[in-house]
Amino acid sequence: MRSTAETLAAPALEVRRLTASYSSRPVLWDVDATFPMGALSAIVGPNGAGKSTLLKAALGLIATDAGQALIQGRPVKTSRDRVAYVPQRDAVDWDFPITVREVVEMGRYAQIGWVRRVQRSDQTLVADCLERVGMAAYASRQIGQLSGGQRQRVFIARALAQQAQVMVMDEPFAGVDARTEADILGLLQELRNEGRAVIVVHHDLGTVRAAFDWVLLLNVRAIAAGPVADVLTPETLRRAYGAAGGLETEEQEPRWAA
């Protein structure tokens, strides 16, 4: 019980009254949410619910209209070293002349600081991270020569190299084969067991039910947040997915019969 109280005292990510918009259309609206440490959390919701926007706003990557985000109780600007971010993969140039090892080294850049070079100790850590995601054998490959799943492993290794207490991922399972998904999920659970917080934008409610501890159900507003079993009820799901009816789980009652 005490450990629960402690994690609640300094949540991994706390979002207060966050409002963000793209050209007048609110994408997030007065969102309050808390994600505990030592838990594997998911942000789920229909397309356009503002899941990615929430992450980007929380990391200070886009301007918000109102509200704030705290990483372990402190504004994100002063806690960059506490959070690692795995963006959606299509954002980078796959033809870039860079090797797998160099990409993972980037995870160390914040700790190394400006101007200074990558140290031996950083390289050891990078090798460990690559080992952990099963990519050690590919360290010298150019990034574009990898498959989709392998690329995703590399970006997770980069986040691991940041040694951050909070890890934030945007759709890490999109376009990834089943085996890679299982591997990554196992790794995320390991991280959770080490006491870190892993927050994942995800759309497959089945996986969330099976493997996640905590969930935020989002549809422009925060519909519900809390332990998975409490949050993912037919009632809240209906409120989140509304008329879209885009539920990926089969255990829902047939709503169109209503």
Binding site: L61, Y85, F96, I98, M106, Y109, W114, Q162
Partner: peptide, 16 residues
């Protein structure tokens, strides 16, 4: 390393 990181992945660079 700063030039490399910002050229390859500007968004990630901002987060660090």
């Amino acid at each position: 390393k700063e030039f490399k990181a910002t050229t390859f992945d500007p968004e990630f660079s901002r987060t660090i």
